[in-house]
Amino acid sequence: MALLLIPTWAGPILKNTGMDWIIHLDTDELIHPAGAREYSLRRLLLDVPGNVDMVIFPNYESSIERDDIKDPFTEVSMFKKNYDHLPKDTYFGLYKEATRGDPNYFLTYGNGKSAARVQEHLHPNGAHRWHNYMKSPNEIKLEEAAILHYTYTKFSDLTSRRDRCGCKPTKEDVKRCFILEFDRLAIIRGLKESVSLPMQEYQPKAVPKIKVIKHGS
């Protein structure tokens, strides 16, 4: 089985590519193929029923604990689980602690990413899903596998986005480039700063408090 990972700006999928699956994945993300008979994305997709056209990977969002991260893929190990993978009483019961005053559960996106079988008339539907001009894809959501999103783990993640943006550091202007409120606020700060943000300013939103609950207390 052949896999193809593509950037989110890719155009129409060509016929006869030799690929079996195509996946939305960004450079700050990894795939966690939990739930397969072996820890393998290839195995995970081979086990998908043949009548399924698209699988949804719920995303987890990283929570950084230090301000000196060099390689997030090896140094960051704490993630906030997607609500699709949490018991509802846990999600709603700890929502306030998890969001830390932010209006959204995640700082960035929360609708996961998807993989699609390569077939005729397949086309990207935004940065997270796929569309087929001739039919409605049959899709399933994976119960254990996930996308690990390493969100703003280094200050350079912010400055690299800032340097690609021609926006002015105002709330109105950054709307041209960014959809999510946290992205907009981060970019505004990045446009104004040339050195790393103090960890204490970012961490309260990025890292939820760890709450220890003792039985009988």
Rank of each mutant, 00 (worst) to 15 (best):
A127G: 14
H128V: 12
P7Y: 07
N59K: 02
R161L: 12
Y133S: 06
N59E: 04
V174Q: 08
E75Q: 13
D68H: 10
E97A: 12
Q200T: 11
L46N: 15
N59Q: 06
T90N: 12
P7G: 13
T153Q: 06
L3E: 05
D173P: 04
S114M: 08
L46F: 13
F92G: 02
S63R: 09
F182L: 07
L94Q: 10
E65W: 08
N59W: 03
K205V: 03
F79V: 05
R42S: 13
P103E: 00
S156E: 10
D84A: 14
S217P: 02
S77E: 11
L148R: 15
Y109H: 13
E201V: 09
H24C: 05
K209A: 12
G50I: 01
Y150I: 00
S194W: 06
H32P: 08
K175C: 13
I188C: 12
E139F: 11
T27R: 10
Y109Q: 04
E201N: 13
S194M: 09
S77V: 14
P72I: 00
N138I: 03
R164H: 04
E143G: 06
G190D: 12
D71F: 01
T153V: 07
P33K: 04
P208M: 02
H32D: 15
L180H: 11
A36C: 06
M134V: 12
M199I: 14
S217Y: 06
P72W: 00
H149L: 08
R37L: 11
P72Q: 02
V55K: 01
A186H: 00
L107M: 03
T17S: 15
G166R: 00
L41D: 04
H24D: 08
S156N: 04
K135N: 00
G101S: 01
L46K: 15
T99R: 07
K80Q: 14
E120M: 02
A206I: 03
C165H: 02
R42D: 12
K175A: 13
A10G: 03
L44N: 00
I179D: 13
E38F: 03
E172N: 14
L44I: 01
P169R: 07
I23Q: 08
P87C: 15
V76E: 07
S156D: 08
L46S: 15
L14E: 09
F106I: 02
D157K: 00
K214V: 07
P49F: 09
P12Q: 10
H24I: 08
V195A: 09
L94T: 13
M199L: 15
F155D: 07
F106Y: 05
G101M: 01
L4E: 15
A98I: 06
N125Y: 14
V55Q: 01
D183G: 10
P198G: 07
D26K: 06
S40R: 03
Y109R: 03
K214A: 14
N16A: 08
E143Y: 03
A36P: 04
M1H: 06
F73P: 03
D183V: 07
K70D: 05
L86H: 07
E61L: 10
A10Y: 02
T8C: 13
L14D: 04
F106L: 05
